[in-house]
Amino acid sequence: MANKFFSLETNAGEQILFGDRKIIPFSQALTIQWPFFNGGFIWNRPVSILETAPDGSEQVIKIYDVTRIAQILLWSLGTIGALLIWLLFRTTTQKRSN
């Protein structure tokens, strides 16, 4: 049992063979354990795979979470858009009062 409050680790899985090709999957786990209680929080996600071709060449293929990226972009767009609307109306109101 690890007694760490916070850890961010990249773990390699077992290699998968198919024909002459090999794949090693990698995942990243963020672990937070409550300092004074039992329990905690673990966020484990796939990050990449390492592919070894029959000629021995290696290639890292990243795994992107498209849904998460789209969500973050849209929420950022909403926040920035709302801020711009507020700024635009604020400057217009200030100009009118002057």
Binding site: F26, I42, N44, P46
Partner: peptide, 11 residues
Amino acid sequence: FLDTADVSVVY
């Protein structure tokens, strides 16, 4: 609980 940080859980 800590076993869920393993790579086999993700793939």
